[in-house]
Design a protein around this nucleic acid. Structure first.
Lengths: 117, 117
DNA sequence: TGAATAGTTGAATAAGTATTCATACGTTTA
DNA sequence: TAAACGTATGAATACTTATTCAACTATTCA
């Protein structure tokens, strides 16, 4: 037992029990946090936003974001691992594009939200 | 100029220019990443999910999440700073609740998304 | 007033992560 | 085949951040 620092949860027992029942499984909440974590980085946000507009190669993205190819490549790897982008090879050039039709919607909704605040 | 490692962006100049035009301001994208970053932590996700069900005091949350009051308190501070939760005091007890009606919708949408994958 | 309770806070620690650098890989072209 | 190009990758570094610990505030109650 970690948290027995105070006793008011005994008084609020009904509330705590009720909330406990509607809480999703720990594993799902962990996955959910991991999902949002991907959007919690400016570089990845920019890459996703760019790709929502057009397929682009690594070099294009590096120029667009004014960053090194290496940094972009590392982040593309993260995005591919979580299934948000896919790629195709054309000679030496690797073109990346979105692999999830919900991405733009999520970005848009987030943007609407922060503009409301 | 950071990224002049390759030249294919010259060939793709039209694409890069077009994407550049639709990209939101850097500041907005930074804010957007910060917004999602809040959801990118299991503890905060759990707190938000719990509060979406019921107002709760710090102690209740600590018991529910099996964490120390201190850890919960620190995260509640973060959530309050970004305007996601508010609190009211009743004697010694501080009750927290959601201060943003979109939170539950965003959590739900995220959950639907990861369950689809 | 003094002890107990609920919560907050600052500093320290530990864990995670974004970028850089150097290098390696695969493809094209001279 | 050698050089050049576009990309990927591993290790190192620097930075961020979640939790813990100890101390502190504010409120209640005996």
């Amino acid at each position: 037992m970690i948290s027995t620092q105070c006793d008011c949860h005994v008084i609020h027992e009904e509330i705590v029990e009720r909330v406990k029942k509607v809480m999703p499984e720990d594993e799902n909440l962990y996955d959910l946090a991991d999902f949002f974590k991907v959007f919690g980085d400016t570089t990845r946000i920019k890459i996703l936003w760019a790709l929502s507009e057009s397929e682009m190669c690594v070099c294009d993205l590096a120029v667009l974001l004014n960053m090194t190819q290496s940094a972009i490549s590392h982040q593309l790897r993260v995005l591919k691992q979580v299934g948000m982008v896919k790629n195709r090879k054309e000679g030496k050039i690797v073109f990346y594009s979105l692999d999830d039709e919900h991405i733009k919607g999520i970005l848009d909704q987030g943007m609407i939200h922060i503009n409301e605040k």
